[in-house]
Design a binder for these strands. Structure first.
Lengths: 262, 262
DNA sequence: CGAACTTTTGACAAGCATCAACACGTGTGG
DNA sequence: CCACACGTGTTGATGCTTGTCAAAAGTTCG
């Protein structure tokens, strides 16, 4: 792989390369994308529903989420994004934002004009393919959430979300042993899972009482990965991450890894 | 537009052209895709979860659906597909099927090797873009379903699904006045909305009693489009169909159109 | 005409929502 | 340094929406 002296977009290239093969030239093209680095506070909006979205955002650190509200004002969180994710491809490529993108924690992002991305895709079929795959996986995750919300009870839903957050952080190389970031309030968890905050609270207490996991302000610790996985009916297939013996396989076999440097 | 003597793939090209501009050359390339026409019965599987999916399927007539089951055996239907839809792009482009694709009615499909589609996308940036957009819209629909299931009550959910079915059939040019195809059993509706068949039954009865809609074996009639839309909290924005004065706008203004020839 | 689905009905149970307080930690300004 | 507001987590009491179970009625099709 090309070793361009640590472009901030490196995280993005690596994320895409996890699921698609990129040539050195393609990697270089991604790293050369015009962008503006920016810090944003927790709670800040990147885009609001209805906006004309003309830029796309690469998350360099921190967590963000995508959500929408019904006519009656209840909110549905549709996705959690983390380091390396290209967020708002959905909105910016379709022109008009059909949902909000908001920061969950303080973050640093790279803002990229959507035209530059479209051009990149036009010039490099391999990148077009990689971006398409990224969108396909995004859809797969959405379908899994749909199943989670539609067909599992509260205990399963919460456990499933915990599993996804842990697994994805490992895959992104930002997990730390059995400890993971847990940037959501219980109200946000409720809005992601179709539950009320009160019920999430009780459900989390039950999971903690069973020594499956412990959750704190902004961190969680997975205490029994395999049991948590069973309770949450979690299988990582839908995330379409390559199976890596160092991390994922280890998780699958016997719990969160001690962590392996990337 | 190129008038190639009615290739069966014409429906597909038209669907893509609804949301993306295609040059004559690109249209011709789509129509020239290698394919095999096949009839399938209601209930037949195109792909099962876990299969290696190496072909993609274009729906030429009839309805299909995509679904998955939890570890406990309950089913979640994730999408309904109709004439003109490219189904199983999701599975075939990711290699391994993460959900089932099954026919809802008797259908005719065109089976296309996924490699031919990948090559088409590589050779024609405009087509790559169109396919990507199609996937983006698929994701937008998934998010709307997520919100429907997670944050709306049974009455709203059912009404919303009815609206979506009607609207999409109009957009695809297969609607007929206030009458539309309604290919789902109440159990399937339940599995799509995260409800039980029994509750769907009661909910449909309530909607019928309120003279919003009438549903029969395989058809439905929208009796009060604007009220149904309000009850279902339905706004067609997420479908990202171009606003056409002949059909969509008319629906938005005063109910299902008398139908306009395409 | 009978088998297999579907739709419909009724009685009852349960999971989750709702409402309302209270506890706790954190940051802010006096 | 304390007082206070504010967001978040926690608890309890209560009730409604929806699920469950079971059976009957209607439909489709060989």
């Amino acid at each position: 792989m090309v070793q361009t002296e640590k472009s901030p977009l490196d995280v993005i290239a690596r994320k895409l390369a996890r699921r698609s093969d990129l040539t050195d030239e393609e990697t270089a093209a991604i790293l050369g994308l015009p962008h503006r680095i920016q810090r944003m506070d927790a709670g800040a909006y990147l885009v609001r529903e209805g906006d004309e979205a003309d830029r796309c955002c690469a998350l360099l650190s921190g967590f963000a989420y995508r959500h929408r509200t019904t006519g009656q004002g209840s909110r549905q969180i549709m996705a959690i994004q983390m380091e390396g994710d290209l967020i708002d491809l959905q909105n910016s490529m379709l022109g008009c934002a059909d949902h909000n993108v908001q920061m969950l924690t303080a973050v640093t992002v790279a803002l990229i004009p959507h035209k530059a991305i479209a051009k990149l895709a036009d010039d490099h079929p391999g990148i077009a393919h990689a971006l398409w795959r990224d969108t396909l996986v995004d859809g797969a995750i959405a379908r899994e959430w749909m199943m989670n919300i539609g067909r599992r009870d509260a205990r399963q839903r919460v456990a499933h979300l915990l599993c996804e957050m842990a697994f994805r952080q490992d895959a992104a190389g930002i997990g730390d042993g059995p400890d993971y970031g847990w940037p959501m309030t219980q109200e946000q968890v409720g809005d992601a899972l179709g539950l009320t905050a009160v019920h999430v609270n009780r459900t989390l207490q039950s999971l903690r009482a069973d020594k499956l996991v412990s959750t704190g302000r902004s961190n969680m610790t997975v205490m029994a990965w395999d049991r948590l996985q069973r309770v949450g009916d979690f299988s990582s297939a839908y995330l379409h991450e390559p199976v890596r013996t160092d991390v994922s396989a280890q998780i699958a076999r016997r719990g969160p890894p001690r962590m392996v440097a990337l």
